[in-house]
Design a protein around this nucleic acid. Structure first.
Length: 199
DNA sequence: CCCTGATTCGC
DNA sequence: GCGAATCAGG
């Protein structure tokens, strides 16, 4: 692949939008993030600094850009072009359609039995902070389906598996761990009085 | 370990 | 000019 005008343009655009080199590389296809970075540098738009500040430092940590001011993330940039990716196209929201099932039957909630529900924080003693955090996070969760989980998505289940609105957090999981930061917080309990249990 | 961008240097 | 390898940091 060569750097055609189009590709360079897209590169510029995406870089300007704050996309990471790897993302740009993926989008472009046929190039690695290194290639992208290399190109970015050659184009002279390595740092979104406009003029001045001509790198007087030989080897200085540029200090993270004040991205704070900028939007946290353009979220899903409206890509005009259809993504070749396999998009399962989820039903979006779980709208209680006409034949909505009684959300709260008179009967007490029946647990499907079988597998113990995930370490749902119950009357446990988890840092209230963590709990609050989780509640917030669940709002922003990707709400992935079982099939959409990957090696690095939070696998924290939310909701009742027997219900329609059951999904997995899906947020970026912590390295190694199966959950995102928030859920790791509640998943791994301080492990207090659980000593014994040798194997 | 995953990721990020930065730099080098043979091609 | 290009980009893999490498570096440096999170």
């Amino acid at each position: 692949m060569s750097w055609t005008d189009e590709r360079v343009e897209l590169l510029k655009k995406m870089w300007g939008e704050g996309q990471s080199a790897s993302q740009i590389a993926k989008e472009l296809g046929g190039v690695t993030r290194n290639a992208v970075i290399g190109k970015v540098h050659r184009l002279g738009l390595s740092n979104r600094n406009s003029g001045s500040a001509k790198a007087a430092e030989p080897k200085e940590k540029p200090a993270a850009a004040p991205a704070a001011a900028a939007a946290p993330k353009p979220a899903a940039a409206p890509k005009p072009k259809p993504q070749p990716k396999t998009e399962p196209a989820r039903p979006a929201a779980a709208q209680p359609s006409a034949d909505a099932k009684p959300a709260t039957p008179a009967r007490r909630q029946i647990i499907p039995a079988g597998q113990p529900l995930p370490p749902q924080p119950s009357a446990n003693e988890i840092s209230p902070e963590a709990l609050a955090k989780v509640n917030e996070v669940e709002k922003k969760a990707k709400k992935l389906g079982l099939m959409e989980l990957t090696e690095r998505t939070c696998k924290w289940p939310v909701g009742d598996p027997a219900t329609e609105d059951f999904w997995f957090c899906g947020l970026p999981a912590q390295q190694g761990k199966p959950y995102c930061e928030a859920h790791v917080g509640v998943a791994f309990q301080p492990m207090s009085s659980r000593r014994d249990r040798r194997r």
